[in-house]
Nucleic acid binder design. Structure first.
Length: 401
RNA sequence: GCUGGGGUAGCUUAGUGGAUAGAGCAUCAGGCUGUAAACCUGAAGGUUGUGGGUUCGAGUCCCACCCCUGGCGCCA
């Protein structure tokens, strides 16, 4: 029993921001040994599951390991309507085929963290299964459980109201839809990022009204992306869970120092005591943050790939970026001529979109051939021997005749 | 029905009828570094919502249309 208490403690502390209605009640339920049904809903608009999602998935995984029933809900219906919480007005409606395809890759990606096999496999559901079936009458019935005042409490709406910006009526329906998900699946708990708090709480309202039942809500912290803003596809600052070890390692190395500890806490399994120790070292400047980041990158690659690949990625990183050597592997193209103008080569190989861009990069000193900076744009390359092209810091290409 | 604001780069926007439409953020490259961040240098990015008109000359003025949007009225 002691062990269960410890696990529950851990479950409800790390990677947790808030618990509704309160932590104590959820703790009691969990300690009683009762199995809960819980879910996390993802928006299928972007095909990548990134480390931000992984934080939530890890929380689900913990519940899964304790024997609770976990559901990954694909918001395919919601995805087809468009997301109101951003001001991204237009969002291409997804076709049914696209949704299925996304769902497939979602599950594959989520499988990096969650288990979909074995004794207590996580389930995948689609909310179109029930949302498509609702009649207008049903919808009105659902909305009658909310007041406009409740909806307006939402920060986002308050802000827009005071700025005189529009609020679409349909935007009030999103929380209602999400809430209905909870009711249909009859869950005991919903987990999501703090940005979803309002929507998840709407589920509590509906659950109480329609099923006279308590639904817990647990929020996890949002993970900042490479540049410190919220990790989001539209900012281009994401690290995908299925990215190649090399890319993953490199991207982690490029996060700002202030995020190191947060990343350790949220996306690795390094113990909290160890993290505290690292944080102290960092604060006392006993360690070069770069070294710590290498450890972080290693842990993350290990987490999503394997220890072996993490070692390799670390080695490769040191080789290419710290010792400025040539990577062991790189893409390769073959050309038919023995002598090719450099600008043509850059365009053919898709390293640049136009000759102008290629010229610019060369003039700025961003192009190397066999580790020598190219200085003149109108150079012709002799391909009797294969050459190695480098554009910027990261792009390499081997060219053969 | 009445009325106000707006549409210029991926985003936010500046721009008296007068030169090649300018800036910040984001992007890309270089420098400094630790592939950090910040900073410095440089670059790319535009059919100025659409179509007409006036003019030597229109982002700017006129007309029509399209799109976004605030408010009022109509329901006591």
């Amino acid at each position: 029993m002691k062990r269960l208490e410890e696990k529950v403690n851990h479950l409800l502390s790390r990677r947790v921001v808030e618990i509704f209605p309160d932590r104590k009640q959820l703790r009691q339920q969990l300690e009683s040994g009762q199995k809960l049904r819980l879910y996390f809903g993802v928006d299928p608009s972007s095909p990548t599951i990134h480390l931000g999602h992984a934080v939530v998935l890890k929380k689900l995984r913990q519940f899964q390991e304790l024997g609770h029933e976990v559901i990954l809900l694909i918001g395919d219906f919601t995805g087809r309507i468009g997301d109101p919480s951003g001001r991204t007005a237009e969002r291409k409606p997804l076709t049914h085929a696209q949704v299925l395809e996304n769902a497939q890759t979602y599950q594959e990606q989520a499988a990096k963290v969650l288990s979909f096999q074995g004794t207590n496999p996580a389930k995948v559901k689609f909310n179109s299964a029930w949302l498509d079936e609702l009649t207008f009458k049903d919808v009105i019935g659902l909305t009658s459980h909310f007041t406009v005042q409740q909806m307006l409490e939402r920060d986002m709406f308050q802000t827009r109201l005071s700025e005189g910006k529009p609020i679409g009526l349909h935007e009030f329906l999103y929380p209602v839809m999400q809430g209905y998900d909870s009711v249909v699946m009859d869950v005991d708990l919903e987990i999501g990022g703090t940005d979803q708090t309002f929507n998840m709480l709407a589920g509590r309202t509906l659950m109480a009204a329609l099923k006279q039942k308590e639904k817990f809500v647990l929020t996890v912290p949002l993970l900042e992306g490479l540049d410190g803003r919220k990790m989001s596809k539209s900012f281009g600052n994401v690290i995908g869970v299925t990215e190649k070890p090399q890319d993953m390692f490199g991207k982690v190395m490029s996060i700002r120092d202030e995020l190191i500890i947060k990343y350790f806490t949220l996306v690795t399994e390094v113990s909290e005591e160890e993290i505290k120790r690292l944080e102290a070292q960092l604060n006392l400047k006993e360690v070069n943050p770069m070294e710590l980041k290498k450890k972080l990158a290693f842990e993350i690659v290990k987490e999503f790939h394997s220890e072996k690949e993490a070692h390799e990625a670390a080695k490769e990183f040191e080789k290419v970026f710290q010792k400025a050597e040539i990577p062991t592997e790189m893409p390769e193209i073959k050309v038919t001529e023995n002598k090719v103008p450099l600008l043509d080569l850059l365009v053919i190989s898709n390293l640049v979109v136009s000759r102008t861009e290629g010229r610019r990069l060369i003039e700025q000193g961003g192009v190397e051939i066999n580790q020598h900076k190219v200085t003149t744009p109108n150079e012709t390359i002799d391909l009797n021997e294969p050459v190695i092209l480098r554009i910027g810091k990261r792009k390499f290409l081997r060219v053969k005749a």
